[in-house]
Write a protein that binds this DNA or RNA. Structure first.
Length: 493
RNA sequence: GCCCUCAUCGUCUAGCGGUCCAGGACGCCGCCCUUUCAAGGCGGUAGCACGGGUUCGAACCCCGUUGGGGGCACCA
């Protein structure tokens, strides 16, 4: 208990990266950092059929994107490597042999059919699982099975006592003695199984605190037994603390499945969620920093994090709230930082060069403060600011229908064109004055009706950065051309 | 079926026996500001699943019911 906290994150590199998985990583990371401990990253790639190198790389990338740096693990190394299970088979073989030799594990020859048959014969439900029947096979019996060509699995002998632990998030949890059958450590073909390798590596890597999803809670009693055995043979130094985190659920209240598009971290990254914003939201799924506060930085989270105060009930992923949290972080960014983060999105859409040209930079610098408070995620910059970086805008059909239909729009556009065409000085104040004079005073239009068509003409949308500033940045030529183009649309409509 | 687990506004949560006719946030609804949309400001809507205990006193403790979730592999 007195030694430094060591937590770990140990995903399998299969498929996409799940937001619930990242929440687990975040909590492990925060728990370690809070206490000045270490965060270990291990890859559980023992399933060659499902694991992929691409997925492995993506996992590292996602962890780094979120800002969860690890102290030991892939590409970083450490004293307990290797950190990929595919490179540790010798270790498992050795530990399995020692468990067998010490009598904590034994060879089991029963097939599933035989176990079921025995359960049925005894009037029991086959669902009870393995019946521990092979615990005391004699050497002669084993030899006989081998002669039949059977390959034994290796099973752990479960202790005949209640298995209890104090869960970091749930308090005391108890499984009655005898309720968990002897389970398989190593397959007949020699392949070590997850319930075996996971605790072995945790023990060898000296993990002190295991924070994982609640789906693993029912397998904890088996691990407790394994730990006792590993400790007995000198592999482990006691049992770690366990904390079972609640699920992150989707619609309904089912656990967010891997198939649910909402569970893929990539969709949030691609949309331009800020890592600090997304991490903030993830942290809120089961944890809170204070009674009246929910916006905080990673550093503040580390400072305040306490696993013991993590809620035990499942949390639904709420996109709306995630966006709101992100928007707050987005607005809090220094403008230059905001601009720098927006550039890749604009460049990706072919709107600016990467890095932007001096002219593009000037426009960006001018518009950034006004764009920043209108956005929720970075990718919105493409739609919001695109009109500033192209020669002609494509007018959004819905916006056109709303603002450019009919005679009033034509009048407004004509008046605006006349007023702007003879403007002596092309500046925001001058444009504002001229438009107000021409449209509000001149035509007697309500501001709302006066500027709507102009905005759509200039930006192509009903939502844009402030109008006069936008026009100034656009320049007189492009502005007038757009008013003319919009007038064509208005007339046609 | 068996085992485990969870239960406060629509959602995420604060609450760890009295200071709670339950606080914050998102959402939603108003109002203000306003050249659109936002942002910002102000206000409002809405909740302790149910039943028994324990206690002077229960959202908080105990038991049960109901409801939700998960697990019962030679997958991870």
């Amino acid at each position: 208990m007195s030694s430094a906290v060591r937590t770990r994150f140990c995903p399998s590199p299969t498929g996409m990266v799940h937001v619930g998985l990242m929440r687990t990583a975040l909590f492990n990371w925060a728990h370690a950092r809070h206490s000045g401990g270490s965060f270990v990253f291990r890859i559980e790639d023992t399933d060659a059929a499902r694991d992929s190198e691409e997925s492995y790389r993506h996992l590292l990338d996602c962890l780094r994107w979120l800002g969860l740096e690890w102290d030991e693990g892939p590409e970083v190394g450490g004293p307990h490597g290797p950190y990929r299970q595919s490179e540790r088979f010798d270790v498992y073989r050795d530990v399995a042999a020692r468990l067998l030799e010490a009598g904590h594990a034994y060879e089991s020859f029963s097939t599933n059919d035989e176990v079921d048959a025995r359960r049925l014969a005894a009037g029991q439900d086959p669902k009870l699982g393995y019946d521990n029947a092979d615990r005391f096979l004699t050497d002669a019996q084993k030899a006989a099975f081998r002669d039949e060509g059977r390959r034994p699995v290796l099973r752990l002998r479960m202790p005949d006592e209640d298995l209890v632990w104090t869960d970091l998030v749930r308090g005391e949890i108890r499984f009655a003695a005898g309720s968990v059958p002897d389970f398989v450590l190593v397959r007949g073909n020699g392949a070590p199984l997850y319930p075996f390798v996971n605790p072995v590596d945790d023990a060898l890597m000296r993990i002190t605190d295991v924070l994982r999803g609640e789906d693993l809670l029912p397998s904890t009693p088996r691990q407790l037994a394994l730990y006792a055995a590993l400790t007995d043979i000198g592999i482990a130094q006691g049992t770690p603390r366990f904390g079972h985190l609640p699920y992150v659920t989707g619609e309904g209240s089912k656990k967010l499945s891997k198939r649910d598009p909402q569970s893929n971290l990539d969709v949030y990254r691609d949309r331009g969620f800020l890592p600090e914003g997304f991490a903030n939201y993830l942290a809120l799924l089961g944890w809170s920093i204070a009674e009246d506060r929910d916006i905080f930085s990673m550093a503040e989270m580390v400072e305040a994090f306490d696993v013991t105060r993590v809620s035990a009930n499942p949390a639904r992923f709420d996109l709306k709230k995630a966006e709101a949290i992100n928007a707050t972080h987005l607005r809090a960014l220094p403008v230059e930082e905001f601009t720098a983060r927006v550039v890749p999105y604009l460049a990706g859409a072919g709107l600016v060069a990467d890095p932007p040209t001096p002219e593009q930079s000037a426009v960006l610098e001018a518009i950034a403060p006004m764009a920043q408070e209108r956005m929720v995620v970075l990718s919105e910059a493409v739609g919001l600011l695109g009109f500033l970086f192209v020669d002609e805008v494509t007018i959004d059909p819905a916006a056109a229908e709303k603002q450019l239909a009919g005679e009033p729009a034509v009048e407004v556009l004509d008046a605006a064109t006349a007023a702007l065409g003879e403007l002596a000085e092309w500046s925001t104040p001058a444009i504002e004055q001229a438009l107000k004079d021409a449209l509000v005073e001149g035509l007697g239009r309500k501001p709302r009706q006066a500027f709507g068509p102009v905005r759509v003409a200039v930006s192509g949308r009903t939502v844009s950065p402030p109008l006069y500033e936008s026009m100034e940045l656009l320049g007189r030529e492009r502005t007038l051309a757009r008013l003319a183009a919009a007038r064509g649309v208005a007339t046609a409509g």
